[in-house]
Simulated assay, not measured.
Amino acid sequence: MTDHWWWRPGVRPGRRLYVWHILFSDRPDVGRLVAECRDRLAGLPGLDPVPAPWLHMTTQIVGFVDEISDSEVQAMITAVSERLRSVEPAEVSLGRPLFHSEAVVLSVVPRDGLDAVRAEVRQAVATTVRTNRLADDPDWVPHLSVAYSNAEAPAEPVIGAMQPPPIPIDIRIDAIDLVSQERVGHSYVWDRIATVHLGLSGR
């Protein structure tokens, strides 16, 4: 395991990012699954569990708040809303562990189950926000982080704690949220700016 909490380019204390997240704070089924994982990992050093209010699936980082005008934000929200009207809610499963050196995460199956949502969000960002971070993104693997690593340590205890894997749950993704996010200590916190519903759920 390696330390997740290094400072990414441009990020500094107090500086906020606009990010499109899928949020789970109001999903008790997801909360129970994450609580099971948290119990499995309890007592292992070097891990920061993600608090229930801040459970999220990062879908698209837009850019720094201080570089994006209010008019661009409103135009982006409108564009995302219009584009996602044609994308129906997604039925996926959540629960198979993935192991990243910086975090313990739960994967989405099928892996491409949310690609249509992200593609429409990216197109909306590209057409409305001049200073964006679209080009900085690696290949997207949708996931829900359960805990972040805060130190260099062997991965074997973490891998062992997640075996056998938890039983996946089926979830319906019918909305995405724009947040203004900052890093505070070993956590990400945010203010919700807008919620956009998918397909018929938004009509």
Rank of each mutant, 00 (worst) to 15 (best):
S101F: 11
V117P: 01
G95K: 03
A116L: 13
N132M: 08
R122P: 04
R118Y: 01
R111E: 14
F64S: 09
D112I: 03
S69N: 04
D112G: 12
P89Q: 03
S101M: 10
P89S: 05
E67K: 12
T78E: 12
S93L: 04
D137M: 14
R118A: 05
H100M: 12
V80I: 11
M57W: 03
R130H: 15
E72Q: 13
H56G: 06
I77E: 11
R96M: 12
V117M: 07
A119N: 06
L106V: 01
L84Q: 04
V125P: 04
D112Q: 10
V108P: 00
H100N: 13
E67F: 00
I61V: 15
T128I: 07
E72W: 07
R83E: 11
D112Y: 06
S101N: 09
V129H: 00
I68V: 14
S107A: 15
H56P: 06
S93E: 15
R133Q: 15
H100T: 04
T58A: 13
M57P: 01
V62M: 02
L134R: 10
M57D: 07
V73H: 08
R83M: 08
E102T: 14
V104Y: 01
L114D: 05
L55Y: 09
D137C: 10
V92D: 03
M76A: 12
I77F: 05
D112F: 01
S71L: 13
P53E: 01
P110A: 12
E88Q: 15
A79F: 02
S86N: 11
E88F: 00
I68T: 11
L55G: 02
R122L: 09
L84C: 04
R111D: 10
T128C: 06
E67Q: 14
T128L: 00
A135T: 14
E72Y: 07
E102I: 05
D136S: 13
S107P: 00
T78H: 08
A75E: 12
L94I: 04
